[in-house]
């Protein structure tokens, strides 16, 4: 059974059909990419999966349970977490604090434990802090935990977003253009990290424009254009799909 299953999901904003009965599935341990030209509806799909938008019709199942009527908070709790296309870090908080906010949903101690610094607070706060440090070290930000998030270079800020998403103990991580703004060396490193995540048992859905990244890392690819799914398959199938080439280049390639 698929980890995530989207069945003919549709998103309509007034007269605009942003996503038109799109179906796809993601199996556990896969890296699946969602590609398409600008305005194809990729980020809208992410917003539908994470409960930011209430879908107009269709159904989304995660681990066999319907999630499309749940709040974003409940969906995070079930194990889906995401990053944002336009960075949404907590800029005036330190890097480690950003990641600690990610652990919020798994934090059991309550307000009064924190106020009075009970043993429960001390134990759990230490555990969570170590966990945050481990995540940051694994993503290569071990020496930047004290920095303010807004002071980091763009590529590092993207990494903090990923670290924050991991900290929620998500099983499925949605990455919205993680390589945007990174130089080739950085995106190479990011690819390695994303693969490592997959090897650790995470499942990943990726929105990405950099075809080098997409073709290199994806197990499978879905292609969206004008809100419709126009193709899906293995990277090499997609690369040679005439419909995809047309969507990207706006016309048939001369042969």
């Amino acid at each position: 059974m698929a980890l995530l299953q989207a069945k003919e999901i549709t998103m309509q904003f007034g007269g605009l059909l942003a996503v038109d009965s799109v179906s796809f599935h993601v199996d556990k341990g896969e890296i699946v990419s969602l590609i398409g030209p600008n305005g194809a509806g990729k980020t809208t799909v992410f917003n539908m999966l994470t409960g930011v938008y209430e879908i107009t019709s269709g159904a989304i199942e995660f681990e066999g349970k319907e999630i499309h009527r749940k709040t974003p908070q409940e969906i995070v709790d079930m194990g889906i977490s995401r990053t944002f296309q336009n960075l949404r870090l907590f800029g005036k908080m330190r890097v480690i604090e950003n990641v600690l906010v990610g652990t919020h949903i798994r934090t059991k101690y309550n307000f009064f434990d924190g106020l009075l610094r009970t043993p429960r607070y001390q134990k759990e706060e230490a555990e969570k802090t170590l966990k945050a440090i481990d995540i940051l070290e694994s993503i290569g930000l071990g020496d930047k935990i004290n920095e303010l998030a807004s002071n980091l270079p763009y590529g590092d800020q993207r990494k903090v977003e990923i670290a924050r998403a991991i900290a929620t103990d998500a099983k499925l991580i949605l990455l919205d253009e993680p390589a945007a703004g990174m130089n080739p060396a950085e995106s190479e490193e990011l690819l390695r990290f994303i693969r490592e995540l997959r090897d650790k048992g995470y499942t990943i859905i990726l929105i990405e424009h950099d075809m080098g990244v997409v073709m290199n890392i994806s197990d499978r690819i879905y292609v969206l254009d004008h809100g419709k799914m126009i193709a899906n398959g293995l990277p090499r199938e997609i690369a040679n799909n005439p419909q995809v080439i047309e969507a990207y280049l706006g016309g048939k390639r001369e042969k």
Binding site: P72, F84, R88, E97, L100, V101
Partner: peptide
């Protein structure tokens, strides 16, 4: 931390659960 996160970016905070 939660309160400050909400101040910094309410949507991102929501998406952290």
């Amino acid at each position: 931390r939660t309160l400050i996160a909400i101040k910094e970016d309410e949507l991102a905070a929501t998406m952290m659960g």
